[in-house]
Amino acid sequence: MDQETVRTICYLARLEIGQNKSNKIQKDLETIIELIGGLQNIDTSDIEPLYSPLEMTATTHEDVVNSDNKKGKFLENAPASNEDYFLVPRVVE
């Protein structure tokens, strides 16, 4: 794992690592990748991935509205909002 890869995944995850920590993080990531890389030695040909321990199918909800309007509480929790909206720095599309 090189510095460039670390920068790319940091950007994808919207995280930044301070200069002083970047070498340590890179080394940590390498160690962890090495750990999980050990899986390559296991033969998994024709094995279906197990994405959930429950091998069942989903239950579904009825198409009937059942919802409280919590607008006030939601906006109150937001770091920046006005009476109607959540606010973020202006985005230029």
């Binding site: 006005n82 959540f86 606010l87 720095p89 202006r90």
Partner: peptide, 12 residues
């Protein structure tokens, strides 16, 4: 909504 609030985008 990008154009209604000065310096902000509003999210609905």
């Amino acid at each position: 909504i990008h154009d209604e609030y000065d310096g902000f985008s509003a999210i609905d």
